[in-house]
Amino acid sequence: MAENMDSALAFKGSNYLRQRLVLSTLSGKPVRIKEIRSQDDEPGLREFEVNLIRLLDKITNGSRIEVSETGTSLYYQPGLLYGGVVDHECCKLRAVGYYLEVLVALGPFCKKALHVTLKGVTNDENDPSVDTFLSGAIPVLKRFLVVNDGLELHITKRGMAPEGGGEVVFKCPVRRQLKPILLVDQGKVKRVRGVVYAVRVSPAISNRLVAAAKGVFLKFLPDVYIYTDQHRGQKSGKSPGFGITVVAETTTGVFYTAEAISNPAGSGKPPSVPEEVGKEAAFRLLEEVYRGGCVDSAFQSFATLFMAMTPKDVSKCLMGPLSPYTVRFLQHLRDFFGLMFKLESHKKTEEEKELKTGASKVLVTCSGIGFTNLSKRTA
């Protein structure tokens, strides 16, 4: 819970660090976070968290950051959100997706269009992969941008855990204001697409992954296409591994994503079987479709953030069951902006009742705070 001390919002613990830093940067309110893993054998900020703070320092101008000697206390006073061209070496302990969450959230509100090159691990088992961001998060952001020219995310090199060696380029245009949305029709799944990647392993593994995943999806719909993404030589990173990302698209342009990845080399876990990895991704996607809503569950927090940042108009979005991460994000939005969301239980359709399918959904409504990017003089 936030406490107001010396004009800085005070929090305790290491959880939800990215949420607090993002909202602090957007609101201009400084934060003081204490007791960061103070009870652990290794107290204080981890290497990947310090690395994230360095990235924030690169895209802002005039930020004041103070970390105690033990690393258990952090004070962050945000500066001007500048953006521009940035080259950043990510910590190998977390995937690039860990850093992309912050960049996607802050990108539209920078002074200069964001052009970031991130180097490190592109795919691991802890964070959403770059493929998932491309399929799930970017479509959410596009709905709020008046014009999405210049919004790009692509992988130039793949890098599997633990050694990485990957490279990702993210470009985001700046906007003076976002547009409110009305997103309440999730539609029906009309096709499934996917990408399989196998780096520094036999190319035959890709075909086994594709066959296993398609075997599950073809029982439900015919339009299934999964392509293979082969990176060789310098573009294949430093560690072996393989994985699959699958995306279901609905008739109303909603995207659900899921992924599965092989156990990383040196993790002590047994080698992964391609068929099992393919089926795991397929079943995870079916579960995501069951949860429903108009936003993928991994990116609900993006939708709530952009809804909050819109002009003073009402935005509505139908979501599946809210994840604990999203619930905490809504509480943080209240702490930083004083903004309350209206959450209503959404009734199942007659078809869902008849088929006894679909999870209980939530209709999320809010009136935007009228956030304006003063650095951008025209729309």
Rank of each mutant, 00 (worst) to 15 (best):
G370T: 12
Y325G: 05
E249G: 07
S272N: 07
H332M: 15
R232E: 13
I138K: 11
L355I: 11
A308E: 07
T251D: 08
T228D: 03
H332G: 05
N148S: 15
D131K: 05
V195G: 09
P240I: 07
K29C: 11
D223R: 06
V147Q: 13
V31M: 12
F144C: 02
P139K: 02
A379F: 14
R334Y: 12
L55G: 03
E354S: 11
A10W: 09
S68G: 09
H154D: 10
L178F: 13
G136D: 09
V199W: 05
A282G: 03
V216K: 08
L56P: 02
V67T: 07
G293L: 08
Q300W: 05
L285Q: 01
V189E: 01
R94A: 13
Y99K: 14
F329N: 15
P270Q: 06
M5K: 15
L81Q: 03
G165N: 01
E350F: 13
D6R: 12
R20Y: 08
G358N: 02
A213S: 06
P128H: 13
V85D: 03
I226Y: 02
A198P: 00
K353W: 13
G233D: 08
L114N: 04
E354R: 14
G293S: 11
S367Q: 11
A298K: 12
A198E: 02
S14H: 10
L141K: 09
K269C: 08
R32D: 09
F341G: 01
E167P: 01
V102K: 14
F306P: 00
L55E: 08
R175W: 11
G278V: 00
E259F: 13
D223N: 06
D185C: 03
V130D: 00
E101Y: 15
Y256G: 03
G164S: 13
M309T: 10
V199R: 05
Y227K: 11
E101K: 14
Y225W: 10
K119E: 04
Y75P: 06
Y290Q: 08
P108G: 12
R46G: 12
V210D: 03
P311Q: 06
E69G: 03
K376M: 15
P43E: 09
G164R: 05
E287R: 10
S323A: 09
A212Y: 07
R18Q: 15
S73Q: 12
A308S: 11
N61P: 00
N61M: 01
L318F: 01
S73P: 08
S272K: 06
C317A: 09
Q177N: 11
R200G: 00
E275K: 03
F11T: 07
E89H: 15
S262H: 06
M340E: 14
T117E: 15
V247N: 11
L55V: 10
K111F: 01
E287W: 10
F48H: 15
K279V: 04
S236L: 06
T365F: 11
K342Y: 10
